[in-house]
Design a protein around this nucleic acid. Structure first.
Length: 272
DNA sequence: CAGAATACCTGCGGGC
DNA sequence: TGCCCGCAGGTATTCT
């Protein structure tokens, strides 16, 4: 369940259950994730207190007394808060037992996610140090996006999904943002005008903010809620709707391939 | 440097 | 029913 709003929703949902709790026990059933879980992981985390959880891009950082646990949900990962007695199922890879009798369970069918302990500060962490600025900050603005696009001949959708340029926008929100700003997904990035970049950037911020807000409605039920909050509650204009009518102009939505990913768009609203 | 191809992994639905 | 294919909300690495 991983685009930025889902990760942020997870962070907020988890926070009240884990803040200031101490890690009492760790059960790992599968160490082979995107990166193998270090053999030292348990030793590094055990008896440490979780001070808070931060988010950088789609990564969650569990700040411990010493160092931090970095976690990514990949394509299919999710976290839940459960009772420690809950039996594990097939893809429940990691359980973290806390001093308050709660348990955090990490589940990830496809194992594209990761979890590991780090001591190095963020600028030295190879997974974090090249990431683009957070999309909801001032550093991520129209001038920045326009400048980045100047040297890119590839499809704007591919640029949007590149972590070194924009962070947190995945396959769903890229399609939604391009629809909102009326830009064709395959349009070469360096042919966009400044105004188009501005519209696109505003769309990104608006979509991400709104999705985080909507995710908030699932928070009160976060504990034990399995799953993929957010996407179902949300109104999607183009994602997964090829062949159906455009919600703005009624034209039949089309689809194309950008970087081996199915991409839906409206041929009329997104002419350029 | 930009860009394209490739790799990691499991499960599901469709076509035959 | 079984098999094969393509597809699924991510991202780092390798090559040209």
């Amino acid at each position: 369940m991983p685009e930025l709003p889902e990760v942020e929703t997870t962070r907020r949902g988890l926070l009240p259950f884990v803040e200031k709790a101490t890690i009492k026990r760790i059960i790992i059933r599968q160490r082979q994730l995107r990166y193998p879980i270090s053999p030292q992981f348990e030793k590094r985390c055990l008896h440490q207190t979780i001070q808070t959880i931060e988010r950088r891009s789609k990564y969650l950082k569990f700040i411990l007394d010493k160092g931090y646990v970095l976690l990514h949900l990949g394509m299919s990962g999710h976290l839940r808060v459960l009772s420690q007695a809950t039996p594990a199922e097939k893809h429940d890879h990691v359980d973290i037992w806390l001093s308050n009798q709660q348990m955090i369970r990490y589940t990830d069918t496809r194992r594209f996610g990761m979890i590991n302990w780090y001591q190095v500060p963020e600028p030295e962490n190879a997974l974090l140090n090249r990431l683009a600025p957070e999309p909801l900050t001032r550093q991520c603005n129209s001038a920045y996006l326009f400048a980045q696009c100047q040297s890119k001949t590839k499809a704007i959708k591919k640029v949007l999904m590149d972590n070194h340029i924009v962070v947190g926008v995945g396959n769903i929100y890229a399609q939604e943002c391009l629809f909102m700003s009326q830009i064709h997904p395959a349009y070469p990035a360096n042919q966009l005008s400044y105004d188009q970049c501005q519209n696109l950037l505003h769309a990104i911020k608006r979509v991400l903010k709104k999705s985080i807000q909507q995710g908030g409605t699932t928070l009160k039920d976060f504990k034990k809620v399995d799953g993929k909050p957010g996407y179902f509650a949300q109104k999607l204009y183009v994602y997964g709707r090829a062949g159906q009518d455009c919600l703005k102009c009624s034209q039949t939505l089309a689809h194309c391939n950008v970087d081996s990913r199915t991409t839906s768009y409206c041929p009329k609203c997104q002419a350029t």
